[in-house]
């Protein structure tokens, strides 16, 4: 490809890109876009949370631990680890 053609094309592209980016930025800042897209995302998330809740309920009714139960247990173990490390640090500082 002739390099001059490439350079010319690039110039044109970058002009188009700068103008497009400016336009998109105006658009994505607009309440007309932000309002409906925010509401849609929230609605999708609420449906997902509700679905998770129902699944956990069904699982729990079978007497089985839910995903949330497992997450809480693992988190508690991590918290315990952190507290043991706190105590170790205190003992070290007392020994100094």
């Amino acid at each position: 490809m002739n390099l001059n053609v490439w350079e010319q094309w690039k110039k044109g592209y970058y002009t188009w890109e700068a103008a497009t980016a400016q336009l998109i930025e105006q658009w994505i800042r607009s309440p007309l876009v932000l309002g409906p897209s925010g509401a849609m995302l929230s609605a999708m998330m609420k449906v997902k949370a509700k679905r998770n809740e129902k699944l956990a309920e069904t699982w729990g009714n079978l007497g089985l631990p839910t995903k949330r139960d497992q997450e809480r247990s693992l988190h508690l173990l991590n918290q315990l680890h952190s507290r043991i490390s706190d105590l170790e640090e205190r003992i070290e500082s007392l020994q100094k």
């Binding site: 897209s37 925010g38 995302l41 998330m45 609420k46 949370a49 998770n52």
Partner: peptide, 22 residues
């Protein structure tokens, strides 16, 4: 900035995102 505008959008519901995704 754009991020600040998005986060302050009254329709952006952080609770829904965290409750839905973890």
């Amino acid at each position: 900035g754009v991020l600040a505008v998005w986060m302050q959008n009254p329709k952006f519901n952080v609770d829904a995102i965290v409750n839905g995704y973890g």
